[in-house]
Each structure stands twice: as structure tokens, then as C-alpha cells.
Design a protein around this nucleic acid. Structure first.
Length: 370
DNA sequence: AAAGAAGCCAACCGCCAACCA
DNA sequence: GTGGTTGGCGGTTGGCTTCTT
């Protein structure tokens, strides 16, 4: 079996065009047929990777925004190195991107002796060990290993070392566990395990089955009583976001991490209020039916993903399959609005066809919230 | 200005699971 | 049940760019 051909190396524009044309004609999948039906000497895997990471529509390029960073940290605390799953929560981002970003961040934080997670986010291994202790009968799950992969575990919230440009305190000084210190209700909502726990049914601690990586993520199972609490937070967010969305117009930021002090993504976020990666622009463009459908699918997926994220720790994943969601229509409406807050940034897309979409403001532009 | 460090990114590699004959 | 094929995923590597000293 040939896994990779010998014609590796960077893809050329001609190869890209050929692959894109192939996908247009035959659709995604059956990647090994690319070599047969085109002149490309790339193996199927290489084609799939190229398409997924570079050519497919709705990819978002550019630096990771502060709210994306926040989400990545939150997701990593929950999932560990499950890059594909994390990518599913970040529309337009690829697992490779997230992985690269995290590994870079990991190296940087390790070098500086900073904890990978802000104080209000339980590290992945911590959560893992808790669930493991709760559910010792299923140790086969990767999540349940008491000794998680050392590649991402960073256990040493060591005292601040010699770190002239950053200090431990400033690294997470915007990430207090006190919600009143967070930048916005949603920042708190998305970041705080306390939120997930306080909005969980009382039975959670004792009966919540351990989520297995081999299982589907639990679908929307926030109990209505719990979702009521979500409502107020989400509605607050919506009000704030909508009020600020129109004011968010700004030049493209070149790099989030340009200045060392911006390692604190919240401070970076605040500093860059009004200047984000074109997230705050209204973009009205033509769109083909196909792209419309893709956008719809992405939004739908995103809704589900956000719901899953919110659902974490609230209900059993075991029941998720085959059971209808407890999320109400109103929940979905709010989640739709949340989706608007995490738009797919198509500013770099080759395909110029896009829906006239309200591209709402990214979190780093919500100056009023800040 | 130069050299080394760090960041960023793309691609490759190997493993695994699902699917199918 | 078994082996081959295919696609997905996570880890790793290497090259280029940017930053720092």
C-alpha cells in the first residue's frame, strides 16, 4: 500500500487548482481516486489533508483571536489533545492550526514557567483524574487514563520565574474566578467550570457517566431549569454584543502575539478592541447555493458544538445518542445568536461567493464589555 | 548588522477504526 | 471471521519568517 508518493513537498498552485476542480466535480471523499482521475501524483491522504487544511471553503486564516484562544484553552481543559474535536468548535479553523497553536503556546508557557490554564479553568488532567476516580470501571478510555499524555500536561504552576516581560499575575489577571472580573458574561460562561457545575443537576457529581472519547459528545441536555440560568447570561451577552457589533470596524490586526505583553489574550483582547481580523465587518457578497448550504451546515454544526460545550458536565453523554435534545427552541435561537458571534471569517477565501451575512463583532472588539 | 532563539506553518508519518468484499 | 482499503486523527519534523540580543 502506497501511503505517500515521492512527489511530496509544498503544493503548487496548479496542484491546488486541480484538486479543487476534482472536488468540485466529484465531491469530497474517495481521495485515492484523485491520483487516477487527475494528473496529480499525490496520494489520497495528501489530497485530503491539502483540501481540509487549505482549499476547502470557509477556512479562516490569520492569527488566533483572543476569543478563539479562550475557547481553545477551555476546550483543551475538557478534551486534552483532541484537535479535531476542538476544531469542530472553531469554525474555519483546522485541527492542524489548533495543534500548532497549542504546541507553540505550550512551549512558550513551559519555558516561562506559566500555567497553561488560567485559574478558573481546571486543567485537563485534573478533570480527567476526577472522572477517573468517579468511574474506575472504565479505564480503557483515553480520557480515563490516570497518567495522561505528557505532551500536553503541564503540572507546574510554578512561582513566577524571572520573567521580565510577563508576570504570573498579569498572565491571567483578567481571568479571575469571580465572574464580576470577567470581561463579559460569555467569557465567564465559556470559561468557568464553575458555571458548568452550578448549572448542572445535583446528581451530576455522583451519577454523571464518564464521557468517553469513543462516544459521541453528549447532545443538548441542559435541563430546562439549568438553561434558565444560561438564558440570562446569554441574553446579557446578546445585548452587549448587538450593541457593540455596529461599532466594531477596524483595521486588520497583523498578529495577536506581536507584543509580548499580549500573551495575556484578554489584555490583548482589550487592547485590540475595535481592531480584529475583519471579524467585525459586514460582508455582503454573492453566494452560490452550494456555499449557502455549506454555511448553513457549518452554522448548524456550530450550534451543536456550542451546545455540546455548554452541556459538558451537565448530563450524561451516555444518553445523548438517540435522545432528543432538551434544549428548547428558544435555546437554539440564542445559540444561533451565539453562532453569529463566532462567524466564519472568509476574508481570505478564494471563493468569493458568500452569503450576505452579518459578521458580528469578535470578542476582542467588544470594547464596551471590556 | 549578524546570529541565535522563537514563532509559525505546512507536510509527513504512523496508528487506528470503519467499511467492504 | 479475515484481510485489504480508505479516511481520520494526533504526533512530529523541518523550513521559513520574525524577533531579540
Amino acid at each position: 500500500m502506497i501511503l505517500y508518493n515521492n512527489d511530496g513537498g509544498p503544493w503548487t498552485a496548479a496542484e491546488d487548482e486541480t484538486l479543487a476542480a476534482y472536488v468540485r466535480e466529484y465531491g469530497e471523499g474517495n481521495w485515492n481516486a484523485v491520483q487516477k482521475k487527475t494528473w496529480l501524483a499525490r496520494c489520497g491522504k495528501s489530497c485530503r489533508l491539502r483540501w481540509a487544511n487549505h482549499l476547502r471553503p470557509n477556512l479562516r486564516k490569520g492569527s488566533i483571536s483572543p476569543h478563539e484562544e479562550r475557547l481553545i484553552i477551555q476546550l483543551h481543559s475538557q478534551l486534552g489533545n483532541k484537535w479535531a474535536r476542538m476544531a469542530a468548535q472553531l469554525p474555519g479553523r483546522t485541527d492542524n492550526e489548533i495543534k500548532n497553536y497549542w504546541n507553540t503556546r505550550l512551549k512558550r508557557f513551559q519555558r516561562q514557567g506559566l500555567p497553561l490554564y488560567p485559574p478558573d479553568i481546571l486543567p485537563y488532567n485534573h478533570v480527567q483524574q476526577q472522572t477517573y476516580l468517579r468511574q474506575p470501571k472504565t479505564p480503557s478510555s483515553p480520557l480515563l487514563s490516570p497518567t495522561p499524555d505528557s505532551s500536553f500536561v503541564f503540572r507546574a504552576p510554578t512561582p513566577p520565574p524571572l520573567c521580565p516581560k510577563r508576570s504570573y499575575n498579569t498572565a491571567f489577571d483578567c481571568l479571575s474566578t469571580n465572574p464580576s472580573y470577567t470581561s463579559s458574561p460569555t467569557a465567564f460562561l465559556l470559561s468557568s467550570p464553575a458555571f458548568l457545575h452550578t448549572h448542572s443537576p445535583p446528581s451530576y457529581q455522583s451519577t454523571n457517566p464518564v464521557y468517553s472519547m469513543k462516544q459521541e459528545l453528549p447532545s443538548n441536555q441542559i435541563p430546562y431549569s439549568a438553561s434558565l440560568g444560561v438564558y440570562q447570561l446569554l441574553e446579557d451577552v446578546m445585548e452587549e454584543a448587538e450593541a457593540l457589533a455596529d461599532s466594531c470596524r477596524g483595521p486588520k490586526r497583523r498578529q495577536l502575539m506581536a507584543a509580548p505583553e499580549e500573551d495575556n489574550f484578554f489584555s490583548a483582547s482589550f487592547r485590540h478592541c475595535g481592531s480584529s481580523d475583519n471579524l467585525c465587518s459586514l460582508q455582503g457578497n454573492n453566494q452560490t447555493a452550494q456555499n449557502e448550504e455549506e454555511t448553513l451546515q457549518m452554522n448548524t454544526m456550530h450550534d451543536e458544538d456550542i451546545e455540546k460545550l455548554l452541556d459538558w458536565g451537565t448530563e450524561s453523554g451516555e444518553n445523548s445518542n438517540g435522545q432528543s435534545s432538551v434544549i428548547t427552541t428558544e435555546d437554539n435561537l440564542i445559540l444561533d445568536e451565539l453562532t453569529l458571534l463566532f462567524p466564519v471569517d472568509d476574508d481570505n477565501n478564494n471563493n468569493t461567493n458568500m452569503t450576505p451575512t452579518l459578521y458580528s463583532c469578535s470578542w476582542d472588539n467588544l470594547s464596551g464589555i471590556c
